[in-house]
Design a binder for these strands. Sequence first.
DNA 1: CGCGTGTATTTCTTGACAGGCATATAACCG
DNA 2: CGGTTATATGCCTGTCAAGAAATACACGCG
Lengths: 114, 114
Amino acid sequence: MEAVFEVLAEPNRRRILDLLRTSERPVGDLVVRLGLSQPAVSKHLRVLREAGLVGVRSDAQRRIYRLRTEPLRAVDAWLEPYRSLWEDRLDALERHLDAMPDDPGPPDGPHGPG
Amino acid sequence: MEAVFEVLAEPNRRRILDLLRTSERPVGDLVVRLGLSQPAVSKHLRVLREAGLVGVRSDAQRRIYRLRTEPLRAVDAWLEPYRSLWEDRLDALERHLDAMPDDPGPPDGPHGPG
DNA sequence: CGCGTGTATTTCTTGACAGGCATATAACCG
DNA sequence: CGGTTATATGCCTGTCAAGAAATACACGCG
């Protein structure tokens, strides 16, 4: 799952996946729904395809794209050990810890501002 | 969860999270274990902190970093509708579809190579 | 074959970011 | 205060990805 996160980092690519999650679609459909140029969509699809996140099928001149789940399973697998951190009864403790501020530090030092 | 994926896209940052998943650690410890320069680690920690993925606590001169799970929960939430795609009985069907090749296309056109 | 639609690729420019080094800041010690 | 350790920031450079425009390719049609 080397590069999957990099691919998912692009918001429009996630939008494409979200669109393909419900049903497979030709490129033109994605172009309309995303409001991007056709070459831009095509490039994103290439990236997604090289990452194994989508698959293609040819229908005459059209190319029908659909979701492929395997890389997402890898992400899910990476996330799994983390998930146990909030799915356990440790939940309450975790929330308490997360509520603590990020130690902004003293603004003017131990001897005071003036 | 706007920028979480971008932050996670960096492999060394994921390594940092993996290290912090088991226990909180000071910066120097991360430097040793990652084999990166101290400034590099410090910069990654800044990014992680601004994304809310880690928190800091001061211990004398040391700064102890620990994991914060909230952004990862957001990723998990994004993944949830996808997860149902392979956690259902549709699993077998999905696998079958994923096994299909990516339509490489004809190598030399309809009239043949020669 | 030549045309038209639908999609992919090339080329260029621009911007973001990782990593290194040098250096600034902060906390502790005497 | 000066010195030392621990961490953060600034500056610089190489790399790489995104975006736009032009163009090439694939397929069906007649």
